[in-house]
Design a protein around this nucleic acid. Structure first.
Length: 489
RNA sequence: GUCCCCUUCGUCUAGAGGCCUAGGACAACUCCCUUUCACGGAGUAGACACGAGUUCGAAUCUCGUAGGGGACGCCA
């Protein structure tokens, strides 16, 4: 590793929400920067005018913030105003930089104006494929004198600018993840640097920006591996120093195809909405392609920063396993102190419109009894519905219990017992005493005793322990629910 | 088609030539705890893609085959 100050970047294109694959790329870059006391830069690759939107940029920024992946340089999360000495950080605002670079290469005969039309390019490509060659273009404008090109431009024609691939040789990349990778230069044809619209193309601005922003290490997805050849050619042409590259394996869906929308939730935003904790998502995606040296499965951001090293990055693709994510999430969730858990759960409960007691002791008690059955924050809604003052639905699975010959008497005894209680909330001991007295007076025990009571409390025969549940419910709710069930008998 | 990358339990992975009778985690299954459900605890089952080579010795190195993925855009 070089002794230069570490500078890494995450460079998303703003087209929709942040994808989990992008989040993992961002995470690794962030971890590497923090591990080495370096800088983490956010650069927006918005050169595709058709698809890029500021709205998407805001969405991705919000997702990054949610994950806690804060950047040192780049657009400010609220104002979008650039922060840092190497701006602008949005490629659409760097056009003059790219033009100057293109002009330099044209002047040095390392690039040229190309007037080929889409149709001409298409014909060539098809011809190449037919002849078993790679579908590269051979531009007839490659060796045109510059004056001739300028004449046509003066007439209003808008050419693209292509890089001139000249020397036939091998480019050797020492990849941090894959080791030595050799690309023959004829793997690519003369590629476009500047579109006829004047907008630069990914490979061109990526190389220039990484160089100008003094990026030292580039962790990015595997699909960019073969792009690296073009970028190496550009670095060479400009005489810039090449950063270190690490090409990450891609994330697959359960069918082993590249993870995409049809696999279900793929954006961080959806996981956020569905009640996943950012620390859990970070934990889970980090382990898709990286492993902790001490085999930790549950790991905090702080620990990941301490432990992260590219040598433990895995080059083979990984399947995104929702079931394991769910476990990781549940584990993080249960480890949260109750005040913190309440803070996270509260928006979901509020959205569901539940009427709940407001005192802290009640909340923490409720959380303690429910968190073992929660896999995500959203699960809290159904659980808290039981202890809210709201009407509860009585499920079909309660029918069998309600049909028991002893049920009616048990529930009448239950109801009058609750009504006789002197406090608003029964204690665990009071409940146990009441249950015992019903057992004695009705001669019913076991399942036939506690299941009807549970139905009269939560509307279904299975669930949380009654002695935990009852003290969370106000007397009037208990009575109302007992009445509701009794009315069905 | 051409080039590049990848291949260890169902899934994520450990593994840097002898520590491997291949370890861990999720999931599955069994048992324990428990008047239910969940949590928790203890177990069981389950993998080196295939074929050659190198070596005293290969999951690990080399080559080939097969399978998967990526790139070959005026997308990123």
């Amino acid at each position: 590793m070089s002794d230069k100050a570490v500078r890494v970047r995450f460079a998303p294109s703003p087209t929709g929400y942040l994808h989990v694959g992008g989040a993992r790329t961002a995470l690794y870059n962030y971890l590497f920067a923090k591990r080495h006391g370096g800088k983490f830069i956010l650069r927006v690759e918005d050169t595709d005018e058709e698809r890029s939107t500021e709205e998407s940029m805001r969405m991705q920024i919000a997702d990054l913030k949610w994950l806690g992946l804060d950047w040192d340089e780049g657009p400010n999360a609220e104002t979008l105003i650039d922060v840092g000495p190497y701006g602008p950080y949005r490629q659409s605002q760097r056009k003059t930089i790219y033009e100057e670079h293109a002009d330099k290469l044209i002047a040095e005969d390392k690039a040229y104006y190309c007037f080929m039309t889409d149709a001409e390019i298409d014909v060539q490509r098809q011809q190449s494929v037919k002849e078993g060659r790679p579908p590269q273009v051979n531009s007839p404008y490659r060796d045109w004198p510059i004056e001739k090109a300028r004449e046509r431009m003066a007439k209003g024609e808008k050419p693209s600018v292509r890089f001139k691939v000249v020397e036939k040789k091998d480019y050797v990349l020492n990849d941090l993840v894959r080791g030595q990778v050799t690309f023959p230069s004829d793997m690519v044809g003369d590629f476009v640097m500047l579109r006829s619209s004047g907008m630069p193309v990914y490979n061109f601005c990526c190389a220039i920006d990484d160089a100008l922003m003094k990026i030292t290490h580039v962790f990015r997805a595997e699909e960019h591996l073969s792009n690296t050849l073009r970028q190496m050619m550009l670095y060479e042409a400009f005489g810039y120093e090449l950063p270190q590259f690490g090409h990450l394996s891609i994330i697959l869906g359960s069918d082993r195809q590249k993870l995409s929308k049809r696999h279900g939730a793929t954006s961080c935003h959806e996981y956020n909405l569905n009640g996943y904790l950012p620390e859990a998502l970070n934990n889970f995606i980090a382990l898709l392609g990286w492993s902790s040296p001490n085999a930790q499965e549950i790991i905090s951001m702080k620990e990941m920063i301490e432990q992260f090293s590219p040598e433990r990055l895995n080059a083979s693709p990984a399947v995104f396993d929702e079931t394991k994510l769910s476990w990781v999430n549940a584990t993080h969730l249960r480890a949260l102190p109750s005040e913190e858990l309440w803070r996270r759960v509260e928006p979901y409960l509020r959205e569901a419109g539940l009427t709940l007691p407001t005192d802290a002791a009640w909340r923490s008690r409720a959380l303690d009894t429910f968190k073992t059955s929660m896999n995500n924050l959203k699960d809290s809604v159904e659980l808290f519905r039981y202890v809210s003052e709201d009407k509860m639905p009585v499920g079909d699975d309660a029918k069998e219990i309600l049909a028991l010959p002893t049920t009616k008497a048990v529930l009448e005894a239950w109801k009058s017992g609750v009504e006789a209680s002197t406090s608003d909330f029964m204690s665990e001991e009071q409940f146990l005493k009441l249950q015992d007295s019903i057992k004695d007076s009705q001669g019913v025990k076991g399942k036939n005793l506690f299941q009807p009571i549970r139905v009269a409390v939560i509307g279904k025969p299975q669930g949380t322990e009654l002695k935990m549940l009852i003290p969370l419910l106000h007397k009037r709710t208990l009575v109302a629910r007992a009445n509701e069930v009794l009315s069905r008998l």
